[in-house]
Each structure stands twice: as C-alpha cells, then as structure tokens.
Nucleic acid binder design. Sequence first.
DNA 1: CGTCGAATTGATGTCATTCAACTACAGTGG
DNA 2: CCACTGTAGTTGAATGACATCAATTCGACG
Lengths: 198, 198
Amino acid sequence: MECETFQSYIMNRGGVTQSQFNELTPFLRSEAFSKGEVLLQQGETCKASMFVEKGLLRAYTLDESGKEHIVQFAPENWFIGDRGSIYFNDLSYFIIDSIEDAEVVFITDEFIEKASELSTSFRKFNKKLLHNHIQHLQKRIDLLLGASAEKRYLNFIELYPDLLLRVPQWMIASYLGITPESLSRVRKSLADKNFKPY
Amino acid sequence: MECETFQSYIMNRGGVTQSQFNELTPFLRSEAFSKGEVLLQQGETCKASMFVEKGLLRAYTLDESGKEHIVQFAPENWFIGDRGSIYFNDLSYFIIDSIEDAEVVFITDEFIEKASELSTSFRKFNKKLLHNHIQHLQKRIDLLLGASAEKRYLNFIELYPDLLLRVPQWMIASYLGITPESLSRVRKSLADKNFKPY
DNA sequence: CGTCGAATTGATGTCATTCAACTACAGTGG
DNA sequence: CCACTGTAGTTGAATGACATCAATTCGACG
C-alpha cells in the first residue's frame, strides 16, 4: 500500500488524524501505471476518483474526427475521475490515461463518506475541494468564451508553470483548444516579443 | 416568505420532510427582483447561493473590451452563485442579474449545513447536485474545446429547449462564445437545411 | 407614429486551421 | 555504432470560420 502522499495530504490539508487515517486504510487501494497506460476507457464505468500520488494523468475525449480534447491534467496531489460515471452510473464520458509513470490511489465514494463521518474537518475540506473545483471550471469556461490563443496560453503558464515542462506541446494545444501548429506560432510570437516563461 | 417552489423542490427531490423544512425556514430568505436588476456585482462578495423560484437569471463576466461572457443561465429550479466568493471570500468574479422578473431564495452555507444535519437524504441530494454540476461544466468545456458554432448551438437547443424562447439571441451567442451576427448566420444556414427546433 | 434595441445581411478583415514539407531527435534493430 | 523509423515541433502557403464594421429591417413599446 503506497499512499504516503495521500496520507499527508488529507492529514495536513484535510485535518485527518493518524488514528482516523488508520481506520480509513481498509477503504483505500493504490496502483501503479506506466506511461501511456489507460486507466479508464470511454464507455466503461468509473468506480472511484483517483488521487495522483506520483506522475501525471489526463482526462480527454475523442470527437468524431478522432481529435483529442483534453479536459483536465492531474499532476501530484490532484484528483481526477468521471463524476457522471461515479455518481450517476453513466458510462464514462472521458478517457483517462497516464502521461508519465504514475502511482494512483483510488478514492471511492465509500471512503469519502466514511472519512466525512469520522472527521468534521475532512468533511469541510472535501466541501471546499468541490466548490473550488467548480469555481475553477467556471473560470476555464470564461476563458474559453472568447480569449485569444495567446491569452489562453499565458493563462495556462500562469496556472500550471510546472506542467509546461512535463507536458508535450501538442497536449497543451489540445487543452487550450487550438492546434499544435497554432501553439507553436503563438510561442514564436511571444519569443519575438521576448517573453520568457522561466 | 415565498419559497413554495424551493420547498417542494427539496421535499420531493431532496427527501426533506415537512417538519424538517419547518425547522429550516428561519435560515431562508427570499426576494423579488425585476428584469434587468443586478443581484451581484463584480467585486462584491456573494454571501449565498441563489435558488430561482420564478424567472431567469444569468451569471457573466466582462472582458477588457467590455464584452459579456455568459457563463450560466438559471431558470426556475436552478441554483446560481459565485462559489469562490461564497466559500473562499474572494471578490465575486461574476456579475449576476435577472433576465426576467424573478423570485429568488437565498441559500446560505448555514442552511446547507443545517439541512444536511437534519436529513441524510438531503445530504446525499446535495452531494449529487454538486457532482452533477461539475460533470455539466466539464461537458461544456469539452464542447468549447473545438466544436463549431453550429454544433454548440445545436447542443444548446438540446440542453435548454425552453430557454430558446426566453433568452434573447445575443445572449445565447454570448453563452456560446460567438457574436450575435454569427449566430444569426448559423440559424439561417440551419433554416436553409430546413432544420426545425420545435 | 416615432424611437430604440434586436436581428439580419453584406462586405471585408483577421485569426486560427489545414495540409504539406522539413528538421530534430529518440528508440529500434541490424 | 549507424541506418531506419516514428513522433514532436516548426514553418510556409492556402483556406476557412468567425469577427468586425456598417447598413438595413424588424418589432416592441411609449
């Protein structure tokens, strides 16, 4: 069982005590995936959220023409999953796979319920997480509603400076909703204006 | 106190009993707004989510050039609010105003907490609402990542057939992330292919 | 009836896409 | 160790989708 990162995450940030955590371990399961492996296929059902201990995952869809649309990246300490599938038993809308070798902890609804029962501060923390997630998604929508390719890219750099170095450019393009060629041109134009991300 | 719609909403769908509801009424406040009135200004703090009893609200932002980006519509039985502002005390990112004369019930976090305490089924219901909201936002992002103006419009019609008749076209355009002129042309082209929404 | 905003239409512009060619580099097998 | 192959990234030219600007029509409302 490899959940140290998750353990310290919910202990430090979620206010869960050691003894509470011990009670919760039976509900946890972790698994390692290698780069490129698919954790959730479109059309399967997703049984749990996934917490990334190590590595980097992504959630994306495929359109009719086979193009990928990356909806979310999940590096260390992030959650990822298909909530429609988890909570409404829909078939998964997203594909989730790993961009780097990864360690993942599966967080079932059962775990969340149990933890919420044991710890008020976890309950509050979880609530904040959800609201934070919603807020984040809304801001992303706002950005997609009319910001230029350049603005989206600058925003991405600001939000995920660490991912810049870990994610191939064509995936960033897909996350931004533009083509790799366009992103390349945006970067060039920024370089010409001698903009330096790092 | 005008909360009949909300009352039947959380009794029928949230499984709250009459006596539980009675205990909760002290936490509720409702208010009427007329068309065009602003309920939340950008930069204010938002103290509560709002449940729409009657009428139609919208949440939007203004960009540097003064253009509106509509992030959400909220007709009867929908919630709207700025979660960043409610839960993290940020200044509101959105402006919320009313498109039609409206009756609104203010749902404070206190109310949610109290109701969750009183009723397990409300707690579950609320959880589902949140996850449903997240799923919905993710699908919207997926759509904005690369779907054509026409596809977005068709998707809008499918999701909100009722809103088609109530929301002026330029607001729909703003929700879709295109200009009113473009939407007009999309509609024309659909009409030429003799597409009929109703 | 006149006014004002919404919607349509046309002419033109701009930004991003598409398609194709080319470079760079990493991984594979001889 | 080097050729072969495949993928990422860049660049160019042509196209296309949507935006912009301007003019006109339509319709609601005073």
